[in-house]
Design a protein around this nucleic acid. Structure first.
Lengths: 139, 139
DNA sequence: GCCGTTTGCTTGAACATGTCAAGTAGTTCG
DNA sequence: CGAACTACTTGACATGTTCAAGCAAACGGC
């Protein structure tokens, strides 16, 4: 067994993977920018299909909770989200405004149309990809 | 034809995709952090298999050239890269030091071992994935 | 019911990344 | 030769990111 050879071949797979990740990331950033949003801001908007505690948003973005404060602030200034309190008065629930909901729909539409996955793969290939990705993310 | 229904189904595919992208991104960031590098720094190191103009590195990272100046500075301070001039004296060629080359090999090894793609997919599935990704990135 | 602990969020410091505009130096080409 | 282009640097500024510190609310044992 040639271990170093194995490592090389495995790394080729990994490299392809990260190349593809970069392509997607750029595509996403471009769509977000088209709506005047940074990628984390766009991801937040997409996540807010329902009122969501900031803590949950931080988990979704896999970042520190303190980070979400700033991101939410900037979205609030632009009238895209608003926050309310629930039973637990420590928790701030973030929710989209109607303007935010319209924006979210537009982003989804554009992602579904312009993402390379959608434009360059056949429906069958997309299904194959989804299956692999689900296994990959453990969902 | 129910266009909005199509858009919804397409968006589900896109959502899966971006979830997977996030998983990979986190995995990469974690490996990089383990070596005391930020993701762009690690990506730069991986790119420097040969002396590379800063302009080419900027293209690879798809960012502004001015950004690369700072990234290269920080890598230089840590003794991982050094720069030289070629024929065209405007161009700075970045190259790994021997310390940098050792680090690069270690990063590749760890990515090949720890990336979810490698740990959660069978070799056949990995091959399938690579084929799809190549089509996706147009390479 | 009280008090220590945990949890959710905010604030401020410190740093990396990213863009843009402006500047310098080297190349190219008419 | 000179204008235009190219490669890099610098500085200003916004954002994202983490960490440490702090505050307020909720929880849990006793």
């Amino acid at each position: 067994m040639d271990v170093s050879r194995d490592a090389d071949e495995n790394y080729l797979v990994v490299r392809r993977l990260f190349e593809a990740v970069e392509v997607q990331r750029r595509a996403f950033a471009l769509v977000a920018e088209g709506f005047g949003l940074t990628p984390p801001q766009a991801r937040s908007i997409l996540r807010l299909h329902e009122p969501t505690p900031m803590r949950a948003l931080a988990d979704h973005l896999s970042c520190d909770a303190s980070n979400v404060t700033g991101i939410a602030d900037r979205l609030r200034v632009r009238g895209l989200v608003e926050s309310s309190s629930g039973d637990d008065r420590r928790i701030k629930l973030l929710a989209l405004t109607s303007k935010g909901r319209r924006l979210r729909a537009a982003i989804q539409r554009q992602l579904a149309e312009q993402t390379p996955t959608m434009t360059r793969l056949s429906p069958a290939e997309r299904q194959q990809l989804v299956t692999l990705l689900e296994k990959l993310t453990g969902s």
